[in-house]
């Protein structure tokens, strides 16, 4: 076409013309990785302006704060030579930490999961993703993985602080590390269970609505209601159904798997439900699988 060299082009010295892209195309796996990384960043508001960072940073700091306080208290106690009595008095250890911050974890999920799925639906971005060289299930799984990893970071950072604090405070560093080492698999397993159950359910809810507010309300309801209903049903005396509802409550699953993984008795109210502790772990696996399945199915069918 001859118009390309007309006089109108004289001034545009920056316009080198359209260039073909002959470089590498990394394919689906790279696309999934990039999408998961984007999900991680979006969960923490990275690259999304100041307002998007407020909720994740506030909740994240609050989730880490107890670990920092515990380490601080232990440091002071160690200075005055009273570490042992303080340590047994502090109610926060590897096995109880997540129970203590469970509300923060739930709020983090309720606030940030809709940032991914609800946002993509609301602004019609799905059409741009699905028009690219990846499957709809790739999209769903990449978003889930990114959010799951973000949650794991939130859950494991305080544990790492606890571990480092405890180890460095002891006179025998290697010995203290060796003492704590056997507990770590249970800690990681507990974090995985929480990421799966809390994260999975939150993502499943937000996959079904483009409205952030509805998603957040729905997630909180899903976290809170099963436990309440279970207690009401049990209060009414029909133990059977109530017992099973317990296995659907994220916070009670957290308590139950904690008891199983750390070899403790079921805490507090759960004691009355009289379930073997392993059922909570099994329930966690089932709930996570169902949540992931729902998300994948949702995006396989959604119209764009």
């Amino acid at each position: 076409m001859s118009q390309t060299v007309g006089p109108t082009r004289v001034g545009s010295i920056y316009d080198l013309g359209y260039r073909r892209y002959e470089g590498a195309r990394l394919g689906r796996a790279a696309a999934i990785g990039a999408l998961a990384a984007d999900s991680f960043r979006t969960t923490y508001g990275i690259g999304h302006g100041g307002r998007a960072k407020v909720a994740p940073i506030v909740l994240g700091v609050l989730a880490i704060l107890p670990a920092v306080i515990v380490v601080g208290v232990l440091t002071i106690a160690a200075r005055i030579g009273a570490r042992e009595p303080f340590e047994s008095a502090v109610p926060l250890g590897y096995d109880t930490y997540y129970r203590t911050i469970s509300v923060l974890i739930a709020l983090f999920c309720a606030a940030q999961a809709p940032e991914l799925f609800a946002r993509d639906q609301r602004h019609g971005v799905l059409a741009l993703y699905f028009a690219r060289a990846l499957r709809r299930s790739d999209y769903a799984l990449a978003r889930l993985a990114g959010f799951g990893i973000a949650l794991l970071v939130l859950l494991l950072v305080p544990m790492v602080i606890l571990l480092i604090g405890r180890v460095l405070l002891s006179t025998d560093v290697a010995g203290a590390f060796a003492d704590d080492l056997p507990t770590l698999p249970a800690v990681v397993a507990q974090a995985l269970v929480i990421a799966g159950v809390f994260g999975g359910l939150a993502m499943a809810v937000s996959a079904f609505t483009p409205r952030r507010a509805y998603a957040t309300a729905g997630i909180i309801a899903l976290f809170v209601l099963p436990g309440i209903i279970a207690q009401i049903v049990i209060g009414l005396g029909s133990g059977g159904i109530g017992t099973w509802l317990v296995l659907l409550s994220p916070t009670l699953i957290l308590d139950g798997t904690g008891a199983f993984l750390f070899g403790k008795e079921l805490p507090g109210q759960l004691f009355f439900f009289d379930l073997p502790t392993w059922t909570f772990l099994a329930s966690a696996v089932v709930v996570t699988a169902v949540a992931v399945g729902l998300v994948v199915r949702r995006f396989a069918r959604i119209a764009v």
Binding site: A31, L128, Y129, R132, A133
Partner: peptide
């Protein structure tokens, strides 16, 4: 810039490209 380069990566382009 953010949205277009993100979508380029979803299309399989390496980060710099």
């Amino acid at each position: 810039t953010d949205v277009v380069s993100h979508l380029a990566r979803i299309s399989g382009l390496p980060r710099t490209a």
